[in-house]
Design a binder for these strands. Structure first.
Lengths: 87, 87
DNA sequence: ATAGTATTTAGACATTTGTCTAAATATACA
DNA sequence: TGTATATTTAGACAAATGTCTAAATACTAT
C-alpha cells in the first residue's frame, strides 16, 4: 500500500504507467520515450516493480514491462472508503 | 493532481484523512492523535490543504479541518483510466 | 572467444521531505 | 491591558529521493 502511493508519486512513473496502458514495452523502448537516462528509468521501473504496479518478464536480452492493475484496485478501495464520510 | 498524489504519499497524512472521515476536527484535536509535534502536523495539514484534500475553516481561536472528497474523484478517474488497458 | 546490444547496479550529488525547537500571530477572557 | 490557549511560521538538520556517469551483468551473434 505504502509502496503503491510512493510508486504513483512521481510524474515520470505515472507517465510510464500511462505508456504501458497502451502496450507492453521493453525497458529500452520506455527509455526512448523520455529524456531521462537509462539508469534513472531503470530505477523508476524498479520502484514500480516493488509497488507491484508493473510486472517484468525477461525475453532473451530484453525485459518486457507490463501493467499490473490488481494493485490499483486496493488504492481505489482505500479512496472509496475515504470518500464515504461518516459525518 | 501532482499535489494530490504528494498529499497521499505519507502515512501520517493518510491517517489524518482517515480521522477526518469520522469527524471534522480542530488542528489541536488532530495533534492529540499523534506523537508528532504540533508544527509537524500543521505542516502536514498545510500540504493536505494545498492538495485540496482538506478544507480549513477558522472558528474563533480554533481551526476546523474537514475532508474534501471532490479531489479524490480526480484520482479515481485517473486510476480507472490506467486500469482500462488497451492491449 | 569477441564484440555488440540491453539492462541493471554502484556510487556520487543536489534537492526535497519530515521532523524538531523556538518564536510569532491570533483569539479569548479576566 | 495582560495572560493563557490555539495554531502557524521560521530555521535547522538528518534522511529520502531523483538524477547522473561509469562499471557490471546477461544475452546474441559473428
Amino acid at each position: 500500500m505504502k509502496s503503491v502511493f510512493k510508486g504513483l508519486n512521481d510524474p515520470t512513473r505515472r507517465e510510464i504507467l500511462e505508456l504501458l496502458r497502451e502496450n507492453d514495452m521493453t525497458a529500452g523502448e520506455i527509455v526512448e520515450r523520455f529524456r531521462i537516462s537509462g539508469p534513472s528509468i531503470s530505477h523508476h521501473l524498479d520502484l514500480l516493480k516493488q509497488a507491484k504496479l508493473v510486472i517484468a518478464e525477461k525475453e532473451g536480452q530484453f525485459i518486457y514491462y507490463s501493467l499490473n492493475t490488481t494493485v490499483v484496485d486496493e488504492i481505489m478501495k482505500w479512496l472509496l472508503q475515504i470518500k464515504t464520510k461518516k459525518k
